[in-house]
């Protein structure tokens, strides 16, 4: 479905995740964060940058990966993106939600 975010029309799925990463911009990310009650700081952006790096290498994201990333520890990750940090961080970063097989 289409959604107007930051004055741009983007394709999202029913949960609000972007389906086409090329439509993502920093402004789109900020708007999604805002909708989730998160105000993005420099720390948030460092994490989003790390997520984008992983995504471009097709490496799956995990809490373990975050732990070993050297960017952030898990407790802080939870503070930055409260209530399901991987889900929220990936949504803001414009990439698909981490998933299992079914």
């Amino acid at each position: 479905m289409r959604k107007l975010i930051a004055h741009t029309e983007v394709e999202v799925n029913e949960e609000g995740y972007l389906t086409d990463f090329s439509q993502w911009t920093k402004e789109v990310g900020e708007c999604i964060a805002d909708e989730n009650g998160i105000c993005l700081t420099d720390r948030h952006w460092e994490v989003i940058e790390y997520i984008h790096e992983k995504y471009s290498c097709e490496e799956p994201l995990s809490i373990r990966g975050i732990k070993k990333s050297g960017v952030i520890d898990i407790k802080e990750f939870y503070k930055l993106f409260p209530g399901g940090p991987l889900k929220k961080a990936t949504m803001i970063a414009g990439i698909p939600k981490p998933k299992s097989c079914i």
Binding site: N13, E14, G84, K87, K97, P98, K99, S100, I102
Partner: peptide
């Protein structure tokens, strides 16, 4: 589960 649900894909969630 560490995931968002016992089923995480929309189709399977709906059916199962």
């Amino acid at each position: 589960t560490p995931l968002g649900g016992a089923f995480t894909k929309p189709k399977a969630t709906k059916a199962l």
